[in-house]
Design a protein around this nucleic acid. Structure first.
Lengths: 196, 196
DNA sequence: TAGTCACTATACAGATCGGTATACTCGATT
DNA sequence: AATCGAGTATACCGATCTGTATAGTGACTA
């Protein structure tokens, strides 16, 4: 299980902290290309000089945005998993419960990684590794739990199915396809692991 | 079952046809905000005057792009469904098979509606209805098929689960999370409908 | 006390953005 | 013969984009 992709992080002075917070909110709510650095600086109460002294470029700001969000999500999930029951089935349900709570608070517009991917077409973009890294990590998490739950079955296929349901629920939540997509996904995951 | 959202379509003269084709390719491959109208005109071999005489604005070009793609997908799916077996289970599998083939030819970067949604935050944008309309239509398709297959069961929950798996597979395909996500999704859908 | 660090304020550069204006060509219709 | 529709070519508009330059302030520190 690899740690979060850490391409290049920056020491966060108070001004940089505010700039990154503003950028994160704006990037997520309006999209990356739709948000200019002037707006970020204004919303953060920071001059463009400070912004460029700390981050060097808008691209680096995007990288920090995604890396920080990835880090936050993994910490949030780790905390929720820490209080989950001991069985693999319970821990799978805990993942979906964590996503459900996270989605309600931080993800009204769906998965930030998926959304960023829609705007970043170049695989050599430094943010690309963060996006694919998080997805690969989630798949390996589901596969590990599936193996624990069903060592005799095709646990890799089961892990991939859990991944599909989870990703689908994030999209359905962001597009508001139907209410409580994460809750529906959790129940489906539960029933997938119910029979012995 | 509603027909494709038809907000406002434009008569396609030869120049307009080439402009829309170029715009569709560029919007899908690079993202909407990342593509300028000058590039679209140049790639289409058309002047900006022609482009604006036909479409009026970039926004309208985006609307036409999504509406045409929605229309193409529904026609493609209808054709595949026409040659599918008579049972609901077979028809569900046919949906996933159609998506699989479509993804291989037209969707290397995932679902155009999901990607567009990542760039369009305003629910009043004329393209918004096309995006949510396609998702609602797909959900009602899956729910209808689920009802046919399992009239005695909770077919609405089953339809939502099929929707989640399908959406998840489109995302997983676009982000290349693992190979043949649509194939994996089809098998999962098949096993979901296998027991009587 | 001299230097460094984080920061503000403001102005500007060069490019690109969506969109418009003017003038012209060509072919089909009436 | 006159008109109209679809198109080309080119120049331009104001706004916005990312990024840089210059000058200065206040706090902390060696």
């Amino acid at each position: 299980m690899s740690s979060p992709a850490t391409p290049q992080r920056i020491a966060l002075t108070p001004g940089a902290r505010r700039a990154l917070d503003a950028a994160s909110r704006l990037f997520y709510e309006r999209g990356i290309h739709a948000v200019g650095v002037d707006l970020i600086a204004a919303e953060a109460g920071v001059t463009k000089k400070t912004l460029y002294d700390r981050f060097g470029s808008k691209e680096q700001l995007v990288v920090e945005y995604l890396a920080a969000r990835d880090e936050r999500w993994r910490a949030f999930l780790a905390e929720r998993m820490g209080t989950a029951g001991p069985t693999a089935a319970e821990r799978v349900v805990a993942v979906f419960d964590a996503s459900r709570e996270w989605a309600g608070e931080n993800s009204g517009r769906g998965c930030s990684m998926v959304n960023a991917h829609a705007e970043i077409s170049d695989p050599n973009h430094p943010a690309y590794a963060i996006i694919t890294g998080q997805k690969a990590w989630m798949l390996s998490l589901f596969t590990t739990l599936a193996r624990e739950a069903r060592p005799a079955a095709d646990y890799e296929a089961l892990g991939r199915t859990l991944m599909l349901i989870h990703e689908g629920a994030l999209v359905a939540h962001g597009l508001n396809v139907f209410p409580d997509a994460l809750g529906a996904a959790r129940e489906q995951a539960r029933s997938l692991l119910a029979p012995p």
